[in-house]
Design a protein around this nucleic acid. Sequence first.
DNA 1: CTGAAAGCGCTAACAA
DNA 2: TTGTTAGCGCTTTCAG
Lengths: 325, 325
Amino acid sequence: MSYVLSGKRPISDGTRQRVRASIEQLGYQPHAGARALASSRSRIIALMVPLRTDMYVPVMLDIAVAVATTARAHGYDVLLLTGEEGPSALRRVTGSGLAEAVILMDVQLHDERLAVLRTAGPPAVLVGLPADPSGLSCVDLDFAAAGALCVDHLAALGHREIAVVGESPGVYARHTGFAERTLRGLRQRAERLGVGLLHRACEGSHDAVARVLARILDERPGVSAFVVQNETAVEPLLALLRRTGRAVPEDVSVVAVCPEAVAAQASVPLTSVAIPAQELGRRAVERLVARLADPAARTGTELLTPVLTVRESSGPPPRPLGIPL
Amino acid sequence: MSYVLSGKRPISDGTRQRVRASIEQLGYQPHAGARALASSRSRIIALMVPLRTDMYVPVMLDIAVAVATTARAHGYDVLLLTGEEGPSALRRVTGSGLAEAVILMDVQLHDERLAVLRTAGPPAVLVGLPADPSGLSCVDLDFAAAGALCVDHLAALGHREIAVVGESPGVYARHTGFAERTLRGLRQRAERLGVGLLHRACEGSHDAVARVLARILDERPGVSAFVVQNETAVEPLLALLRRTGRAVPEDVSVVAVCPEAVAAQASVPLTSVAIPAQELGRRAVERLVARLADPAARTGTELLTPVLTVRESSGPPPRPLGIPL
DNA sequence: CTGAAAGCGCTAACAA
DNA sequence: TTGTTAGCGCTTTCAG
């Protein structure tokens, strides 16, 4: 009866041994429901993943897996919710005591799910950043800094005219935080450094990339570098550049904001700012667990510092400017 | 107390109305744990997804989302388990009454998780087919038939020498059912039709595809058609064929086994056999729910019939053979 | 340090 | 058709 007591009270070694042995031999397993009922803690975290088709899926799955893994390491299980279900799903799983806490992915700037969290909200962590993160706990990559980093790198190499191949139009239409923040970072830094910047949303298909590329080259013939924030557009872009006789990085530079794996395996290994999917999932859970253990634990926003890795896709522009010697 | 009774016993209309009203106004939500305890039914299905990096992720996620969506439609929630945790996770969630039933993805021919399911097993459905499916409930695409279909199509067009660009070596090393079954289907049909068939496993990176392609063309100069079962290899392959001056479908044909979206959005829209990810997830849940409702419900294997859609990547070989008229 | 007992909120069986 | 009640298997409090 009093067993296992998760060490909640002193137990003699003898008793502990005896109980442990019985547990093994009988294959005893505590009933999850009974436990949840008596303790009013289900040891379940709900994870809401989007089911969009215009986002790069591997990142989502990576985060989800990291969440599940980290949660398990802390004794929690993960309940899978689809974004489709919206705010009501949060109320449901939370109100019924099914889940003790919630992790939200693919947060939008003005996300309807946030209302639930602010009012009588269950402990929650967002992977992403809404317009107003006050009172919420958020974890994300500092995409604004990531954008700035890309411009810095290219400007330092001597590029004066940069084109940005962005996410699908739908992503911006939904005001997805990370895309807009990256763009802001790119624009601000470009302006400060006096570098020209042209941004175009872009679907991931070969044809769409071809169209966008053509437009960009038409509107800004002086472009010598691309920043790509769209994993599925990476290969089409590289292929098209190759096909039109533009060597990377000799003729044009390409910098991506994408997972390491994508950058490293591209047909030209890409200089890139990594999206640390696993790290994001891990941190989200750790924050949540900390808050579950101690409701007074710190809330607020945690932005991971982006890191740019130089690979083979970036170099000085074809006609070097103002770098004497 | 007697409320909502899920219609388990006759209730007068008046009472029903009254109870419903109170439920609304008080925002009452039944406690999941208490419910699970009293009824010994948690209304939770555990879904075990692999966390491999060498499988095409969108298909996995599609299945998972379909499972979650369909489960909700039947009043179930989904618990996310990673393949990493192995058989013990099944015992844990199942033994503790956390989950009533289990869906397994990425099943291997000799899967260690199957032992748990056969002995004192909880209701389970596999998405995929093990070597011995007896006593188990399985749902999958008939990959053998899919392979045969590809060969049929190409042979009918007049191709006599086909190369297969397969999944990563690791997939075969693990004896993942779908890959081996496809291969078997391809080989048997090729043999029957007297068509030459060369299979090579292939990583998804551009370089790997280049190497494999070079080997194939070297070993079998007469190859006039490719069957690709590796989503990430599709674009590299098309790019390489283009680059080496082989027009698709005029010089070589390409047929893929992949999701519709991949085939349709390729730089050359691909003739393909679709992988119906959503359908698989949906069916898996429906089988499970049927069995949960009626333990006597049919078990066994359900193989979806593959469908080949002709797009723009397949045509007759460059030098037509023996098709007089 | 350990035993005993009172619920946790619900379902299901038993009366009425 | 409806009211009552006995648990479901655990956690936790209160005695010892």
